[in-house]
Design a protein around this nucleic acid. Structure first.
Length: 291
DNA sequence: GCGACAG
DNA sequence: ATCTTGTCGC
């Protein structure tokens, strides 16, 4: 239905990114199916806090490192997961899906797992989830099926979450973080390292806002598009990093809560869970000479 | 018409 | 995502 909208957008993507052996007509068909998948998943999305645990005590100062209530694991957020996918430089179809779980108190990795696969699905802007979600979902289910004690209470995803552009390109309003969250029924937060241009938002526009606000008020600004809706926030996660990260809602976590949690996990610009998944994913491919 | 588009 | 060198700074 909405498939015809933004079709020029899709055509561009297909010509530049899709496998050469796939015709335009076939790609178009794929994308129409993808839109329907996203639309159906979107109906199950929860955009407010919906979890049983509580945030660690906002202990007075700097950190809560190593001081999270003992014996109360199920009621206090402790195990935070991070996922990412890296690719072979030689063969772009070879991908390594990675999941890590960190102890929120120490920010140490307590679990990691990898899965090297061949991806058949091309990367199309706006449809990242269709390419990367399957591998990650498998890693999550592996943990869940074995009732692993470190199964994450919350998942940080390398990629955007909920975006609310009004009008035509409605399909971009459902990023990888949402997609994964709904399918795995787990609270998720989306972290983007670059801005996905949507709803009138641009890099330069955000930069201006960030500079206008200066260091005077908050260390983050709301990302409000032409539609007037807040898609997420751009935030300087560290004093030293001028470049912001882009935080958006995934599933079952409010934006306010997401910001609080993100702040608890930032040793560097990128939150530790995502950063560790990123690093280790790349290392895994190289160690196994799976170039 | 060209360009722009998370990873 | 990946290809890439040096370099400035704590």
């Amino acid at each position: 239905m909405t498939a015809t909208l933004c079709s020029f957008n899709l055509m561009f993507s297909m010509e530049k990114r899709a496998s050469p052996e796939i015709s335009s007509a076939e790609s178009h068909q794929f994308i129409e199916n993808w839109i329907q998948v996203q639309d159906s998943l979107k109906r199950r999305l929860v955009t407010e806090d919906d979890f049983t645990w509580k945030l660690p005590k906002p202990t007075s100062t700097a950190t809560v490192r190593g001081r999270i209530e003992e014996g109360d694991d199920k009621h206090v957020l402790k195990y935070v997961g991070g996922v990412d996918v890296s690719f072979s430089k030689d063969d772009p179809s070879v991908a390594c899906g990675t999941i890590v779980v960190l102890d929120l108190g120490t920010l140490e990795v307590v679990y990691d797992d990898y899965s090297v696969v061949r991806l058949q699905t091309p990367y199309v802007p706006g449809f990242l989830a269709l390419r990367e979600a399957p591998v990650l979902l498998k890693l999550l289910e592996k943990m869940k099926n074995s009732a692993h004690p470190f199964y994450p209470q919350l998942l940080m995803v390398d990629g955007n979450g909920l975006l609310h552009p009004r009008g035509k390109c409605t399909f971009t309003s459902f990023g990888l973080a949402c997609h994964l969250g709904v399918l795995a029924n787990i609270p998720t937060i989306g972290i983007g390292k670059t801005l996905h241009h949507v709803d009138g938002l641009t890099q330069s526009g955000v930069r201006e806002l960030l500079e206008a606000k200066g260091n005077l008020t908050e260390d983050f600004i709301a990302l409000t598009g032409y539609s007037g809706r807040t898609l997420g926030v751009a935030m300087r996660s560290t004093e030293s990093s001028l470049k912001p990260i882009f935080v958006s809602i995934g599933h079952r976590v409010s934006l306010d809560t997401a910001i609080i949690i993100i702040k608890m996990t930032c040793n560097y610009r990128v939150p530790e869970p995502v950063r560790q998944a990123d690093i280790r994913s790349r290392q895994y491919l190289q160690k196994h000479q799976w170039r």
